[in-house]
Design a binder for these strands. Structure first.
Lengths: 118, 118
DNA sequence: TTACTTACTTACATGATTGTTCGTACCACA
DNA sequence: TGTGGTACGAACAATCATGTAAGTAAGTAA
């Protein structure tokens, strides 16, 4: 989510992952706060200040970073309204909406798995 | 996957994620090499040396770390055979087998999504 | 006694992600 | 002119994840 050094082993190893669609999908939702944000946005469009209020424990920096990353990966759309003060709204894309039921399956699996683990 | 400092913001923030089963599931499969290992093991039991040979680009340290983590999370079972030299085999647990079709859905989604992105 | 195989383990270094703090741009309104 | 609200951005620091290089343990065979 920042700049990367080329030619480190870490970078070079990426080629072994990059052609794995599963890894890609997990990467896309893998940021620390992305799932929480997806879960919020599935209930409807939110503006930046709403997210900031609801997730007050997420630093503003991380909030914008995760949102930007999700926008780049085609999970959300960012709409800017030229009002005063500015209003910025975030909405799920169709692709993200397709993802939701799969995440629900994952969630159910996680639930079962955790109850088994204790 | 190592020791953690308590009381850092990073640690404290965990409580906002820890009760999210989705995040748990993503965490469980989120290590860099876990999906590749799952994909290999779904085709059948493998011994350590097989994995090492197939994934020669993964350092031994990371290989054992990821395998141990997957074992702790109930994704794989580690069987040790008291032969000479030792033989250690890794097998998917039923829980991991339940996970496979969900991961296939994720993979299909990733495939669609990536073709849209370019 | 030494060498050999398998499956790790440890100490250390590098790179990536996340968090803290402060500052900015825009325009309205007093 | 100055204050206020929204939505960020940049510099820096802390923490986590990954990679490198070397060594270990157990047992058998030479």
């Amino acid at each position: 989510m920042g700049t990367r050094k080329e030619n480190s082993t870490y970078s070079r190893n990426e080629k072994y992952i990059i052609n794995c669609n599963m890894s890609y999908a997990v990467h896309v939702i893998g940021g620390r706060w992305k799932l929480l944000l997806l879960d919020k946005l599935r209930k409807g469009t939110s503006r930046y200040s709403d997210l900031k209020k609801e997730f007050s424990y997420i630093s503003e920096r991380m909030l914008t970073l995760q949102l930007k990353s999700m926008e780049e990966d085609g999970l959300i759309i960012r709409n800017v309204y030229a009002e005063v003060p500015v209003r910025v709204e975030y909405t799920l894309t169709p692709a993200a909406i397709e993802l939701i039921p799969i995440l629900d399956l994952l969630s159910a699996w996680g639930n079962r798995q955790r109850s088994l683990q204790e």
